[in-house]
């Protein structure tokens, strides 16, 4: 009899029983609603074993790429080990560098995981100060291009976590992080599709990873990055992004400064105003939004109304 392995327990599954029914029969309090593979309430992630194609029909491609599936319509041939969607393990990492970025209040931290870590560019990890204090930070690194994990951290006035990171974290420290999670990431398979990336502040970090991942995968469609900041110092990857744009004709970098002090080579105004003045129609575009929650919320709505499909809008609000 094929088994479902969940929470370290092997559950016997009848051939004609869905994975969801198997879990429920075993007394697992699994969430569900439609039981027909559409509402996605029951979504889980496969850790090992073959997920039948039917159990991923209709899922966002970024979910399917990470082995998420719908237990209510999943009838696997063999054993399947599964986990709750948000479940991630912890691991130790060594701090390999800490540096100021852009001369302002942003810190670049590089970490070397001390046990193997699988991740995709654009995902985030949770970073622990101690048992009681931890924050999520997006990864700016790309597994295929970078040996280390790279994070961008903005100093929060009076913030407990960032206060510690800025004042005490140093090269050589060993820290605890979690495995990577999140679905704001590049999925290969549509190399001609146009990509629009909108970020404010350190929301740039995951977008930088996604862009480099796309270029590494020989993405041929247009890639447009709009980075919004109040001050010029907040455009902390300006030089690197201009160089990247020089090297790749299909990549366009549009910095936007909303404060009074606008450099000659940046746009004046709010980032979303810049985006939708340039791109009133987004039919067929894939859109990524990261940063300030209000910008992400408003931008998601505007991108959808401009014609982007909800399945191709990826948002990550920094709260």
């Amino acid at each position: 009899m094929p088994k479902v392995i969940y929470g370290g327990q092997a559950l016997e599954r009848e051939e004609d029983q869905s994975v969801l029914d198997c879990l429920l029969a075993a007394g697992v309090d699994a969430p569900y609603s439609c039981r027909s593979g559409t509402c996605q309430t029951c979504m889980m992630r496969a850790v090992s074993g073959e997920v039948p194609e039917r159990a991923q029909a209709g899922l966002k491609d970024v979910y399917a790429a990470q082995n998420y599936f719908l237990p209510c319509v999943c009838y696997p041939e063999g054993d399947l080990e599964i986990t709750d969607p948000g479940d991630v393990g912890k691991l130790p990492a060594e701090v390999t560098s800490v540096e100021s970025l852009g001369g302002g209040d942003i810190l670049g931290i590089r970490l070397k995981p001390l046990t193997p870590l699988d991740y995709r560019a654009g995902q985030f990890i949770r970073f622990f100060k101690d048992e009681h204090l931890a924050r999520n930070y997006s990864l700016a690194s790309v597994p295929a291009l970078d040996d280390e994990l790279s994070l961008h951290v903005r100093k929060v006035p009076g913030g407990l976590m960032t206060g510690w990171l800025f004042d005490h974290l140093k090269t050589g420290d060993t820290v605890t992080i979690t495995e990577a999670a999140g679905d704001c990431l590049y999925v290969s398979g549509k190399p001609e599709q146009n990509l629009l990336l909108i970020g404010t502040g350190t929301g740039l970090a995951p977008l930088y990873g996604i862009i480099r991942d796309a270029l590494y995968n020989s993405h041929r469609g247009e890639i447009r990055l709009y980075h919004g900041s109040v001050t010029p110092e907040g455009l902390y990857l300006d030089a690197a992004l201009r160089e990247l744009a020089q090297q790749h004709p299909n990549f366009h970098y549009i910095p936007c400064v909303s404060g009074d002090n606008v450099p000659a080579n940046a746009r004046s105004g709010m980032v979303l105003d810049g985006v939708f003045a340039d791109l009133p129609k987004l039919n067929g575009w894939r859109v990524f939004l990261c940063g300030h929650p209000e910008m992400v919320k408003s931008g998601t709505r505007k991108a959808f109304f401009a014609g982007a499909s909800m399945n191709e809008i990826h948002a990550d609000a920094f709260t």
């Binding site: 439609c34 027909s36 559409t38 509402c39 709505r301 959808f304 909800m310 809008i313």
Partner: peptide
């Protein structure tokens, strides 16, 4: 919005006479 879109899809599937519970 993304979660809501999935629910809209479930509703449309049902209204179109498609597979549903």
């Amino acid at each position: 919005m993304a979660k809501q879109a999935a629910k809209q899809k479930a509703f449309l599937t049902m209204a179109f006479g498609g597979p549903n519970n």
